[in-house]
């Protein structure tokens, strides 16, 4: 064997543009907030719209985070994800209606306990439903995208009809818990209490997901599995079990999102999950398929942009998110924070 010199590559410092590149998606959110500040004449309106946009973004993130992981980990396109949003909303609202004595009481503590019970009920129901959905509907179509789209879309329709059978075909109007009604005034702006709660819940969910994904071995396996599932299995991990767990967790999160979204809209319908899927898919695509961080940033951008544009030019609000998706995909065709997939 030939003698060769030691391998000692020289490292040069990357340019500023190169170093800032990975942070650009993160910077988009404050940049959009600043743009909104410059475009909206009234500071109080801007503050109200910003909180509203963040709240909307957080709820979209909660609903979309499971979908992006499911796609990234097992390459499954689940058009039925919206079913978990609808079921979560109906189960959660049913629990809240049963706990009327707690939600009607002017006590923040009692209201939050009622909300927590409703959320737990919705997450258990949608988690269990996710387990069954994966086993019956998704498992037979692994590796077949077209079949996945068709069969999960079929699953969504079946679930929507089951909701109509169980809860009736009418929309259900709901009141938020007593202490979460109304707004607080800050710097001359009216900030809805419920939206502030939604922002806090969204931040907690994001922090918890990041902690699990970054600080635990299960999280490591999930992140590695999104990149190269075959290699994760070659190391000895049963990716199928992990995937089922992620699918259940993602479904439960969609259920949580459904409860939050339902209370945000103050009305729930069997089709609400299906309607939310457009925003959810936009967020998942612009974030980068499989990227939780990208999904979070994408959701905030969508929420903020929709609120700013609806205020400035209401007619343009309908196309603002599609425009955002087009712009981001032209800039980064794989999404803002693409997951490096094994070839």
């Amino acid at each position: 064997m030939s003698i060769a010199p030691e391998h000692a590559p020289k490292m040069a410092q990357a340019s500023f543009a190169h170093r800032i590149g990975p942070w650009m998606p993160v910077l988009l959110v404050p940049m959009l907030v600043v743009l909104g500040f410059l475009a909206i004449p009234s500071t109080s309106s801007w503050l109200t719209l910003t909180v509203s946009g963040l709240a909307m973004g957080m709820m979209i993130f909660i609903m979309a985070s499971g979908l992006t992981l499911v796609f990234g980990l097992m390459d499954v396109i689940n058009f039925g994800h919206g079913a978990f949003v609808s079921v979560g909303a109906f189960v959660g609202v049913s629990v809240l209606l049963m706990l009327g004595h707690m939600t009607d009481a002017p006590s923040l503590g009692l209201n939050l306990v009622a909300l927590l019970v409703a959320v737990i009920g919705a997450m258990i129901a949608t988690g269990a439903m996710g387990w069954a959905f994966e086993k019956v509907i998704v498992m037979p179509v692994y590796g077949h995208h077209l079949k996945q789209i068709l069969v999960t879309m079929g699953g969504l329709i079946v679930v929507e009809q089951l909701i109509i059978v169980l809860w009736g075909p009418e929309e259900i109007y709901i009141n938020r818990p007593e202490a979460l009604k109304g707004a607080i005034t800050f710097a001359g702006a009216a900030l809805e209490k419920y939206r502030l709660v939604a922002v806090v819940v969204g931040l907690v969910v994001f922090a918890a997901m990041r902690w699990v994904l970054r600080r635990t071995k299960i999280g490591l396996i999930v992140r590695a599995g999104v990149q190269n599932g075959e290699m994760v299995e070659a190391l000895g991990y049963r990716l199928r079990m992990i995937f089922v767990g992620v699918f259940i967790a993602g479904s439960a999160l969609a259920g949580l999102g459904g409860v939050m979204w339902g209370l945000y809209q103050e009305v729930i319908t069997a089709h609400m999950g299906n309607q939310a899927m457009i925003l959810i898919f936009i967020v998942v695509i612009i974030g980068g398929l499989g990227s939780v961080e990208g999904c979070f940033i994408g959701a905030l951008l969508v929420g903020l942009l929709q609120n700013y544009v609806a205020f400035l030019e209401p007619k343009a609000a309908l196309i603002s998110n599609i425009g955002l998706m087009v712009a981001i995909l032209m800039w980064r065709p794989m999404g803002m924070i693409p997951v490096v997939k094994a070839k």
Partner: peptide, 28 residues
Amino acid sequence: KPTPAIARAGLGFVPEDMGVFADLTVEE
């Protein structure tokens, strides 16, 4: 047997494409 069971039986595999997880640190 499925791949994870084979690996856990004591087989270490280095694929031709190296199979490193690019988004994970060396430590991870």
